[in-house]
Amino acid sequence: MSGVGELDDVWTVAGRTFSSRLIVGTGKYKDFAQNAAAVAASGAEIVTVAVRRVNISDPSQPVLMDYIDPKKITYLPNTAGCFTAEDAIRTLRLAREAGGWDLVKLEVLGEARTLYPNMRETLRATEVLANEGFLPMVYCADDPIAAQQLEEAGAVAIMPLGAPIGSGLGLQNRVTIRLIVEGAKVPVLVDAGVGTASDAAVAMELGCDGVLMNTAIAEAKDPVRMAGAMKLAVEAGREAYLAGRMAKRMYADPSSPLAGLI
């Protein structure tokens, strides 16, 4: 394809088009101001948010919406902390009522230690949500077959983990991520596991449509600067993917001509 320019390299999920391929979380920041500055530096157009009880004892506390305007940035409600399909569905029904958004991030966790997804519950929740008119972007295992099943169940985006949530270990299995990208008809985003900029670039070089991250930015020593680094990494990885990398060789191949050596 020719449209390598940044302006026309957009991506579309469930009919909505975005130019930034970086989705960022809004957890773990020092305060809302730092969070908002990091979102701005990242260039992200979508942020994930959690649904929680309001503090009825102190309702005057500042809230996320005071700092990140949902009219300018797309809120993607998540189901973090849900371990059953029922809990996740209940959470997203509330999210839809609170914000009116049907584009959601579904994650159904299997255990607290690894936060690895429970794919049976995830698949079940995907079916129910899709039938109720939700547009679920689904956090999942890096399993190409499970990814196909999610797509058949109504997932509008497949979001395999690169490594455990919050681990910062980077993509552990490039082969499975590539296989998911090759097989998917909906966008694929690596969700979880990115630790630093090169990890994000690797995901994009594999042909992913985007990357979702939270801890890699929020727990950097300078989160706002890291947000900017991630923006560049995602763009660089995307451009490298579109440019088409050179073939790998087993041995050296000189870049300077051999002819004319003195």
């Binding site: 957890g27 773990k28 809302f32 948010v49 959690a50 649904v51 809230v63 998540n78 973090a80 009522e97």
Partner: peptide, 26 residues
Amino acid sequence: VPRSTLATVAVADGDSFEIVHFVGGG
């Protein structure tokens, strides 16, 4: 409780409510 009916539904004795909003998350 649909937003459109919040102003019309009366509270009954023994009701259990969950009131949620959006907070930071990944």
